[in-house]
Design a binder for these strands. Structure first.
Lengths: 217, 217
DNA sequence: TAGATTGTTAATCGATTAACAATC
DNA sequence: TAGATTGTTAATCGATTAACAATC
């Protein structure tokens, strides 16, 4: 009898990539075992949080030793998409779009940048690593025919919603939004926000709050 | 009598940039008032969350009308650092580092990219907009003399911790980490993680989880 | 005024932390 | 074996949502 498990909570999913990074570093250092205390120290968490997080994935630890580095790496990788190839397209061939396209870590983690698009005549035809920038006119056909799973939006804010519509229409199931704009998508399509400005604003607040505690009359 | 307020919780701070974007769009559309229902609809939140979030900042709404767009924009901007100039340096003059350096939205939001550094001879001296890529040897002096507040780490993982150390040593109070590596910093120094691969992994999980619910024996 | 929307308190929900028995 | 560490339950903490009096 098979029963459905609840999905892994979002706060956990956001920590898993950091575990994976840490575990890979340990693997490179030839470590065989890693304890919840090791992971907690490395990521500034409590050992309780680490064990709770790992309980969400299919990994079993060994009392007195911890978790097997190789097993943890494999399972974390699978949960985060490294166990299969995921086709992704990038829309926007500016510096940010090209940076992602050429990022070796993507392909090392199961993400295959299948195409990159731009609407500027001057950009179309340009080489980006092994790819050639395609006209945005070809987006629908390429995404559909290639059964592309996800799209990255790296265009100016004014174009972001239009691009999102085209990607969804062409069949992608998820969008990574790097644009400084709000996107509306149909139910069932996933969006992850990844605006760097927002992270810098978050940092600016943290720095200021720690320096000058807020006060009220 | 002045009393200290608790800092704004992190989940709230992470939403504020999205409110600001939305409010600016409404301002551009000449709207004068915005209700919690407008904001909730635009950002996929409940009206309760919106009102609770706004209660953390110094904005007062008006029953039957909502919040003044101009006031909300001003106060949100101040909280997120737009009310002053924050000097930032970027370390790493690859595509990602250059993308951020040239991102007009940074300067429009109070962030002044003061310098960009790289350790490669071939990169040093190159123009990035109005800036010239500096050798990393000059980082300590430039950051210290310029009283730079924050540093962005856009270097390969192997160099990330070294760069973080140098930035902290030179006096920055916050780090934006774009590198695929774990950073350790002294107490009191703030780090915000902004690894794009992690966001893509989060998206891949969400897409897969919605398609094939997990099952267990 | 009547009605809509804020501001705020209370209730609920979920995430984190603590504690400890199980176990290698 | 004794001791360290997992796995898991319970307790705590904090965030979100609901509810509604205040008010424009």
């Amino acid at each position: 009898m098979t029963q459905s498990l609840p999905p892994i909570p979002d706060p956990v999913i956001r920590r898993l990539p950091r575990y994976l990074t840490h575990v890979r570093e340990m693997k490179k250092a030839q470590e065989v075992w890693v304890s919840s205390a090791d992971l907690a120290a490395g990521l500034a968490l409590t050992t309780s949080t680490v064990r709770q997080d790992i309980s969400h994935i299919d990994v079993t630890g060994v009392p007195k030793r911890g978790y097997r580095v190789a097993e943890l790496e494999r399972v974390l990788g699978n949960v985060l998409g490294a166990g299969a190839v995921h086709r992704v397209v990038i829309v926007g061939a500016g510096l940010l779009g090209r940076a992602l396209t050429l990022h070796a870590e993507l392909s090392e983690n199961g993400f295959d940048v299948y195409a990159i698009f731009d609407n500027a005549k001057s950009a179309v035809g340009r080489k980006v690593g092994p790819l050639t920038v395609q006209s945005i006119d070809k987006l629908a056909r390429i995404v559909r025919d290639g059964r592309v799973e996800m799209g990255v939006i790296a265009v100016p804010p004014a174009a972001a919603q239009l691009v999102a519509n085209q990607l969804v229409e062409a069949g992608v199931r998820g969008l990574l939004n790097l644009a400084h704009a709000h996107l509306h998508v149909p139910h069932g399509i996933h969006i992850v926000e990844a605006r760097l400005l927002a992270r810098l604003q978050q940092l600016a607040y943290a720095v200021r709050a720690s320096r000058t505690p807020r006060s009220a009359a």
